[in-house]
Design a protein around this nucleic acid. Sequence first.
DNA 1: CTACAGTATTTGGTAGGCCATAATACGATT
DNA 2: AATCGTATTATGGCCTACCAAATACTGTAG
Lengths: 231, 231
Amino acid sequence: MSGALKDAAIRVERPAKTLRELALDKVREAIVNGYFRPGDRLVERDLCAQLGVSRTVVREVLRHLESEGLVANLPNKGPIVAQLDIDEAKQIYEIRGALEGMAARLCAERGSPEIVAALDESLTAIRNSYRDHDMAGVLANTSSFYQTLFTMVDRHVAWGVVNLLTVRINHLRSMTIKTERRGIEGPLQMSKIVDAIRRGDGEGAQQAAMDHVAAASAIAEAVLSAQKPAE
Amino acid sequence: MSGALKDAAIRVERPAKTLRELALDKVREAIVNGYFRPGDRLVERDLCAQLGVSRTVVREVLRHLESEGLVANLPNKGPIVAQLDIDEAKQIYEIRGALEGMAARLCAERGSPEIVAALDESLTAIRNSYRDHDMAGVLANTSSFYQTLFTMVDRHVAWGVVNLLTVRINHLRSMTIKTERRGIEGPLQMSKIVDAIRRGDGEGAQQAAMDHVAAASAIAEAVLSAQKPAE
DNA sequence: CTACAGTATTTGGTAGGCCATAATACGATT
DNA sequence: AATCGTATTATGGCCTACCAAATACTGTAG
C-alpha cells in the first residue's frame, strides 16, 4: 500500500455499531412507523425486555430521542412518545422551506452539470417508485434528492438539521405522498427546481423549492386537521 | 375555581431540576466557556469525580451533548470536546442567516408595534452593555433580541434550532463581539433590522438580518484562521 | 535499537439494588 | 354514603459493582 493511498477506499464497512446505536435505531424506527403511537408511555423496564438490553442503554436511547424531539419527558411521570401538533408541523415545513430554498439557490449559482445529473437521477427514481406504488421507495428517493441538493454544495450541517426535523414529521410524509395527485404534482414541482438550477436561476430555484414544501405543508395540514377531530 | 380559569397562573414553580439536568448544564457551561478545550478527552470516571455524580448520569449527559454536537465520540476511545472547524462555523452562520432572515421578514409583515418596542428595548440594552464593557451582558441581550424576533411570531421550533446551533459557536461569538468596531457596527446593523420591521419592509428586514450574521461570520472566519496557524 | 509480550486504562455493556414520588386501591371513620 | 388517611404498586432517578474488549503504555529480550 503506497502511503498516499486513501485507505478509506477499501475500508471494510464493519458494522461496528454499538449496541446503543442499534437500539436507538430500533426505537426510532418503532416510533416513526407507528409501532409506538404518540402519547404512548415508554416504560424503561418494558423497553429493556423488548429490546433485550440493559436499562443503561435504554436510558441513553431515551435521552437521545428526547433531544431529537421524538419523545417528551413528563416530570415525575417518565417518557412518552411526543405528540406532533399541527402548528409545530407547519413550523417544521417552513424551516425546511427556508433551508432547502437556500440549498437550491446555491446549487443554481454553482452551475455544475453533475448536480443537475444527480438530481435528475433521483427524480426519475422517484417517478419510477410512484409508478410501482412503492411508497417506501418514494420516501427514500425523495430523501436522496434533497441530500444531493445539500451535499453537492457541502452543506452538511443544514442537511443534518433538515434530517433531524424530518423524522418528527415522518409519518406525515408517508401520508402526504399517498395523497391523490401527489404522484404527479410532487415530481413536477421538483422538476421545476431542477430546471431552475439547470439554467442557473438561483432565485427561481429557491422559490420552486419553497413552493414544493409549501404544497407538502398544505397537504399535511389538511391531513392532520381531518384526523384530529376523528380521535 | 371556575372551570375556564387557567390554573397555570398560580402553579407553584418548583425547580424540580433533576441531577442529570444540573450536570448537563454544568458540563455544557464548562465546554462553552472553555474550561474544557476542543479536543480534550472527557473521561467518564474523571467527570464522575469532578461532578460528584455516578457514571449513569455522566453517560447520559455525554450522550445528550453528543447529540447537541458539543462532544464527539471516537469509537472505542471515548468522548472528546468537539472541535469546530472553520467550514462548519460558516455553515452555522449561514443557517442562522436564513432562519433569522425568515423571522425578521415575518415580524415586518406582521406589523405589530409591540414587536418593534420589544426589539428596541433589547437593542438599547445591548448598547448599554457595550458601553459598560459588559460582554456577558452583550451576549445575553443579543440572544434575547433574537428570541423576541422568533417568539413574537411564534416560531419556537426555529428558535430552538438556532439555539442548538449557537451553542456550538458560542466561544466564537464571545470573540467576535470583542472585536474593535463591533460595538458600533453590531448594534447599527441590528437597528437596520428594526427599522425595516418598523416600516413593514419584509424584504429589507430579511436582508438586514442576513447582512448582520454575514458580518459576524466574516469576523469569525478572520478570528479562526488567525488562530489556527498559531496553535 | 527494535519487536514483542504483558499490563494498565478506559469504554461499552450488564446486573441489581435503593430511594422518592405518584397513582391506585383499600379500609376506617364520621 | 362520602370522605379521609393509609398501604401498595409502579416507575423513574440514581448508585455501586462487575465484566469484556479495545487501546495505549511499558519494560524486557534479542
